[in-house]
Simulated assay, not measured.
Amino acid sequence: MGELILIRHGETEWSRSGQHAGRTDIPLTDAGVAAARALTPVLARRHLVAAFSSPLRRAMQTAELVGLPDVKPDPDLMEWDYGGYEGLTAEQIRETRPGWELWRDSVVPGDAGFPGEQLQQVAARTDAVLDRIQPLLRDGNVALVAHGHLQRVLTARWLGLDASAGRLFHHPGPGTLSALGTEHGRPVISSWNVL
Rank of each mutant, 00 (worst) to 15 (best):
A112Q: 13
P73D: 01
D139C: 01
G148H: 05
M60K: 02
E101S: 15
G181C: 03
A90Y: 10
V71Q: 06
G116D: 11
N141V: 02
T155G: 06
H147Q: 11
T155F: 03
T126P: 01
G166N: 06
T29R: 01
E117D: 13
K72C: 07
I189Q: 02
W14F: 04
D105R: 05
L195D: 14
V71P: 10
L56C: 01
G22R: 03
A143E: 06
A179R: 10
I26L: 14
V194T: 15
A38S: 14
S54C: 03
A35C: 05
G175N: 07
V49G: 07
Q19I: 02
E13S: 09
A34L: 10
V107T: 11
E11W: 06
T176W: 03
P75L: 04
I133L: 13
V145Y: 05
T182Y: 04
S190N: 14
E79Y: 05
W80N: 05
F169M: 14
R23L: 12
S53K: 07
G113F: 08
R152K: 15
L102P: 11
A179Y: 00
R104Q: 12
L88N: 10
M60F: 00
E3Q: 14
M60W: 00
L68K: 01
I133T: 08
V129C: 04
Q151E: 14
A34G: 08
G87Q: 12
A124D: 09
D131G: 10
W80Y: 12
L56E: 02
E91N: 13
R37E: 15
R45K: 15
P115V: 12
L43I: 12
A50R: 09
A31G: 06
A143F: 02
I7D: 02
W100K: 13
P69G: 02
G160N: 11
Q120K: 05
V142H: 04
G67T: 00
E183Q: 08
M60T: 09
P55D: 09
H147A: 13
Q118S: 14
A31I: 08
F52I: 08
L119R: 04
W80T: 08
P98V: 15
H47A: 13
L28Q: 06
H47C: 08
H170D: 15
F169G: 04
M78G: 03
Q120L: 12
G110N: 04
V66C: 00
D127L: 10
E64T: 05
P172W: 03
G10K: 02
G32M: 03
R16A: 12
L161Q: 14
A156V: 01
W80M: 07
R46D: 06
A146N: 06
V122A: 09
D105F: 03
E101K: 15
D81N: 14
S54F: 00
A31H: 06
L159Q: 05
A31R: 11
A51C: 12
D74H: 05
S106T: 07
P27K: 13
K72A: 12
V107F: 03
A35D: 07
A50C: 11
H20E: 03
L4K: 09
L56Y: 00
L6F: 07
A179M: 08
H9F: 06
D76L: 07
A38H: 11
A128R: 15
S106V: 01
V71I: 03
Q61V: 01
E13Y: 02
D25K: 06
